[in-house]
Amino acid sequence: MASHVAGPDIEKLIKLLARLPGLGPRSARRVALHLIKNKDQLLVPLSEAMRVAVEKVQVCETCGNIDSASPCTICTDTRRDPSVLVVVEDVSDLWALERASVINAAYHVLGGTLSPLDGVGPDDLNIAGLLKRTAKGEIREIILAVNATVEGQTTAHYITDQLQEQAKELKVSNPAYEPIRISQLAHGVPIGGELDYLDEGTLLQAIRSRKAFE
Rank of each mutant, 00 (worst) to 15 (best):
T76K: 08
G137H: 07
N174G: 08
H187V: 06
V172D: 04
L35I: 02
V87W: 00
I14W: 00
A167F: 09
S47A: 05
D77W: 05
E194C: 09
A32I: 04
E61S: 15
T73C: 15
A106N: 04
R19W: 02
D123C: 11
V52T: 10
A167C: 15
G24L: 10
T154E: 04
L185V: 05
Q58H: 12
C72F: 14
Y177S: 06
P8E: 04
D161R: 15
Q184T: 03
I207Q: 00
A145G: 07
Q205L: 07
C63L: 10
G129P: 06
M1G: 13
L204T: 03
D118E: 11
Q162E: 14
V86M: 02
D9S: 15
A106H: 00
R99K: 13
S92T: 08
V5S: 10
D90S: 10
Y107C: 03
Y107A: 02
D196P: 14
A145D: 02
L43C: 12
C60Q: 10
A106Y: 01
P190R: 14
V44G: 08
P190S: 10
G201F: 15
A128I: 08
L131H: 07
Y197S: 15
G111W: 00
R210T: 00
I74G: 12
R80A: 08
L117E: 05
S173D: 02
Q164H: 12
L131P: 07
G129F: 02
L203A: 07
S68N: 14
L46R: 01
D124M: 15
K136F: 05
D93E: 08
R99L: 14
L204P: 06
P21N: 09
A186H: 00
D77M: 09
H108D: 02
I103N: 02
I66G: 05
V109F: 14
R30P: 11
A100S: 13
K132R: 12
P25E: 08
D77L: 09
M50F: 11
K15V: 03
H34Q: 09
G24K: 11
T202G: 15
L33A: 09
L131F: 08
T113S: 15
I139A: 04
L97A: 01
A49S: 02
E165N: 12
V189H: 01
K132F: 11
P21D: 06
A69M: 11
N174F: 03
Y177F: 02
